[in-house]
Design a protein around this nucleic acid. Structure first.
Lengths: 192, 192
DNA sequence: GTCTATAGGATGATAGAC
DNA sequence: GTCTATCATCCTATAGAC
């Protein structure tokens, strides 16, 4: 039985995530990150290549989680409504597990460079396209109301993507209550 | 009959808004803004006090719009559902009119300083508190389903606050169609 | 693995000429 | 109202001692 060993690199990335969440990637300096760890900025470079590597490691790890999660849902042998329910729950699970990294993913992805940027944008487009397909399928099968698919897609995704902000602020609601209410609100609306 | 005169200061703020939307406040330099206008950075200071003034002018103008809009809705002599409908429509109207400034309001408000920051946070809290009150009132009166009020509040607000991203990306849907579908989706959900 | 020192460049802002 | 020149400061990153 061994404790999980947190490498210095992982520690740097975790510290940076917290700072990025507060001020954003560009406004956080290597000195800020180092100071938060009680060392000097130059020491960081013994463990990482540079500031960019922190950002791309942080973002791409979570982006892959979303991509994998969505691909699994797309392959489920269930109906559209059940799939959307799965997407919502998957999104909530990832939010809870990676809550610190989600700010950078949502707000600082445009500061990725070269292939990292391309990969991220591609994954994001695929994700949305998968979701869009589920919604259109649901409308065709009469399980989803015939509203503009983009409005439905955008409405649900906005809520899910911003969840990390509220999940922290509101004293961490119970995950199962959150899933239940969120699914109900997004699927059934709020009006009686 | 005279054309609206756009002062140099307004031009600076409009240019900055566009740049802030792409890269964020911190990543945009005074040189970037000046170059976009075809002048040198030093010339900007003849019209504005500094970079901070651009940000605070930009954000606080829109923040006041939201505050005034919400205060008007709160004073309406109607029921909770009608009030929420009004909030949604008001939010869409402001999004359409100030689409360039909303990125900074949503993503860069933390870079405001001193009283500007305090004022913004205060306005935002009041706004949310007004909205929360409408929702709780609706639940009490049986017009809104008895879900966790924070989930309802967060779900609607997230969608409305992110609208500016989608409104631009999706080739500017017709505003009235958008209002109708958005109200329907948020109030009645998506499931048949 | 951390330090000090520093290179090399970008940044916000000012002074003063035109 | 815009320019050039410049200051003081901050930034990422590297070199080399310990």
């Amino acid at each position: 039985m061994s404790m999980k060993t947190v490498s210095r690199k992982e520690e740097i990335i975790a510290t940076a995530s917290r700072l990025f969440k507060e001020k954003g990637y560009v406004a956080v300096s290597m000195r800020d990150i180092a100071q938060s760890m009680g060392i000097k900025a130059a020491s960081l470079y013994n463990h990482i290549d540079g500031k960019q590597e922190i950002l791309s490691t942080l973002i791409l790890e979570v982006a892959h989680e979303f991509t994998n999660g969505m691909n699994q849902v797309a392959m489920e042998n269930t109906g559209p409504i059940e799939k959307i329910k799965s997407v919502i729950e998957m999104h909530i699970d990832i939010t809870v597990n990676y809550s610190e990294a989600l700010a950078a993913l949502n707000n600082d992805w445009m500061h990725l460079e070269n292939d990292d940027l391309k990969d991220f944008v591609q994954m994001r487009e695929n994700y949305e396209e998968n979701f869009r397909h589920i919604i259109k399928d649901g409308i065709n099968k009469g399980e989803i109301r015939p509203r503009h698919p983009e409005v439905i897609l955008f409405s649900i995704l906005s809520t899910l993507r911003t969840l990390y902000v509220w999940y922290q602020k509101r004293g961490k609601l119970d995950v199962n209550v959150l899933k239940k209410d969120m699914v109900a609100v997004l699927l059934k609306g709020i009006a009686v």
